[in-house]
Design a protein around this nucleic acid. Sequence first.
DNA 1: GTTTTTGTTGATTGACGAGTCAATAAACTT
DNA 2: AAGTTTATTGACTCGTCAATCAACAAAAAC
Lengths: 193, 193
Amino acid sequence: MPKLGAEPIRRAALVKATIETVGEAGSLEVTVAQIARRAGMSSALAHHYFGSKEQIFLAAMRSILTLYGAEVRGALSTATTAESRLRAIVSGSFAPGSFRRETISAWLNFYVLAQTLPEAHRLLRVYQRRLRSNLRHELRPLVGARAEAVARGLGALIDGVYIRAALADGAPDRAYALKIVTEYLDRELEVRE
Amino acid sequence: MPKLGAEPIRRAALVKATIETVGEAGSLEVTVAQIARRAGMSSALAHHYFGSKEQIFLAAMRSILTLYGAEVRGALSTATTAESRLRAIVSGSFAPGSFRRETISAWLNFYVLAQTLPEAHRLLRVYQRRLRSNLRHELRPLVGARAEAVARGLGALIDGVYIRAALADGAPDRAYALKIVTEYLDRELEVRE
DNA sequence: GTTTTTGTTGATTGACGAGTCAATAAACTT
DNA sequence: AAGTTTATTGACTCGTCAATCAACAAAAAC
């Protein structure tokens, strides 16, 4: 049965299944067996490739953060002015690829994992720092000295909108989420006009 | 040994110990035995009074939300104008009683619990609705039709600042948290001036 | 064509933890 | 003083689950 070169496929399937399983369960208290079954393999194989449940979670987290980064970069690629780039970062943050039910729920759970797992903590810090740095960079020419404060506010607001989407029932409302953050941004940019 | 009327004392001790234990562990994966030990009793007694771990968690959540409500009400009691009441709600949200490490971490964990436990979900929704309604009420005379949107934004921002405080290391910086939210509010209020 | 590497799983181990229960004891009741 | 209620716990049950292992299978290497 062994098709060679299975490792990367298996790993990817496990990562995907982890996000789905955690997202659906709304909890980290899912078993490796559940994840493995969803990914179409035995739990033994999951352990074989990742070594531990912890590593599976970390890989899933990296995947979410990587996807998020890609979405933002994608949105940035067509933007040229500081303001359009800023808006691209914001709307990229709510791209349909990232802003979906299971992903949001998984993201929230990984946030909790970061309280316990140093590596998860590190990953989340990297994401936060990068986001803030990007925001600050584009904000500088627009709001000057307030850039730092606005960047922090925007970052916190994005997280807040995410966390609230996790609690909302029904599909997450992308347009609505975007509206909240965009209005905040509009107000801040108005000041200099 | 039985001192009569122990029940309320035991319950309170368990609730307190639950928040501390969950907060310190940064996870809901704490055992009833750990909580009970911290509260100075056997796990059997914890089960005797609460029936299940789930009920213990819910009681702890109610306690956090009740304390939060009390802090806000306290801050409101001295405020008279719409703007001062608004600022009271915001600063009450970061009162030292609520905005402490373990409480924040516990709060984050209970947020996750709300994904799974309907009653926890309900409790959080009540808190969100009440906060939004309060904010909207005070905002109406200040920003008119924008009241609803600003209230939602403020609510999300407060949650976002909380969640970020959970990830920050060291003691949570109350002044800093307050500054972020206050600046947002300032901008929104400026519009009508 | 035998050895090695890669893929795969069923079965098992070992630990841990929620919840139960029987038993003990000190109050209050009558 | 006998009976009832409230407080309390150690010991136990029963289930769950992460992790390991032995064994089997197929491709690659030699």
